[in-house]
Computed example of a mutant assay.
Amino acid sequence: MKRSRVIAIYLVSIVILGLCVFVSLAWGSKSVPFSQVINALQNNNDTSFSVLVVRERIPRTVFSIMAGASLGISGALMQSITRNPIADPSILGVNTGASLFVVIGIAFFNINSANHYIWLALLGAGVTAVFVYVIASLGNGSMTPIKLALSGAATSAVLSSFVSAVILPRSQVMDAFRFWQVGSVSGATWDSITLILPFVIIGVIISLASIPALNVLALGDEVATGLGAKTGVIRLVCAIAGVMLSGATTAIAGPIGFIGLMIPHSIRLIFGSNLKGIVPLSAIGGAALLIISDVLGRVIGSPGEIQVGIITAFLGAPILVIIARKAKVRAI
């Protein structure tokens, strides 16, 4: 792809993300003129109602950018290490593992704070990813993408049963868990953003640093091994980065689906198989999609709101069907 076209794609993507941010600050159950949005960002002394509304939406929008970018990058990593073009963080059971540990915390340790959820979610996601990796490595031969995907699917199914077993006999746990399980960015605060920021930064750095290795891995395990790449180490490191990104986001927002699956796959259809373009654009696209989904949930559900996890499912499912109909899904 020509350099000029690549630059144009990046510029258009950034402009679209910027427009999404302004829309998020301006639209909702209470619409605010764009002039008031600019005023709220520039004038700290203004305490009018519209300005206060905008300022209340800033943490939510910032978190949406972080969460959407994290899920987009995580999906791109999972698709690359499994060589499955429609994989997402759930392929390793990451979301289910995070959910199980959060449920255990709510049920047996009376944990009800998002600041505590993050440690449980990260621990659950990490333990599950390691377990799946070990299971996929057992048996004859080394770990393969198919074994990894099958191990993740089987583990996710088992953990989902454990989640049901814990919450069904406990109505109070179900009430606390069901709002988190749907997926929402409404609980985002500056404290929660600060809490997950180190995990997001580390995950992004690892992801960007792993791009050359992932491009080698895309040539196939035999070719990559012949070139001196340690395929197992590459997959492990990228899986850790994906776990950090999706686990931190899941802890605060709940398991939001389709972004990690749909965005990287869509970018790949446009940009090809080069991870130098897929990873950054997946971050931008994931952030834009999550912001717009949140805005739609607020506008459609006014004066309340529809959780963003429901909106991403409604947006993601038909778009993914269209992609599957118009494109030949093949191994990466």
Rank of each mutant, 00 (worst) to 15 (best):
I58R: 13
E305Q: 15
N112Y: 10
W190N: 15
T96Y: 06
G72K: 09
G232V: 01
N45E: 15
G226P: 01
R235E: 00
P255A: 00
I332G: 15
A239L: 15
F108L: 14
I259N: 07
S70G: 03
T231H: 01
I332S: 14
A224R: 07
A239T: 15
S137I: 01
W180T: 01
L138E: 09
F314E: 06
L275S: 07
K2V: 00
N44V: 05
L52V: 02
W190H: 11
V299R: 05
G139T: 07
A213N: 14
S273G: 11
I167N: 09
L289N: 07
I323P: 15
V23N: 10
G247F: 01
S24P: 03
A253P: 15
S171W: 00
T128K: 12
S151C: 05
T250W: 04
G260H: 04
I211G: 04
S207Q: 08
S273R: 13
S80C: 10
L269G: 07
P255T: 00
P59T: 00
A218R: 12
E56D: 14
A188P: 14
R325H: 13
S80A: 15
T250Y: 04
Y10G: 13
A327L: 10
V163F: 10
Q307G: 05
R178F: 05
A107M: 09
A253W: 05
I202R: 03
S74C: 11
L71D: 09
G105M: 09
G277R: 09
A69D: 11
N84M: 07
L281K: 06
A288C: 12
S142W: 00
I118M: 15
A288I: 06
V12P: 14
L219R: 01
V134E: 13
L41P: 02
G260I: 03
I118P: 08
S266M: 14
S142T: 11
I291L: 09
I267M: 04
M1S: 13
I263A: 02
L261C: 03
M66V: 09
N95F: 00
I118C: 07
L217F: 00
P33Q: 04
I146R: 10
V329Y: 11
G152E: 08
T231M: 04
H116L: 12
A40D: 05
P303K: 05
M174N: 14
I278C: 01
G75Q: 08
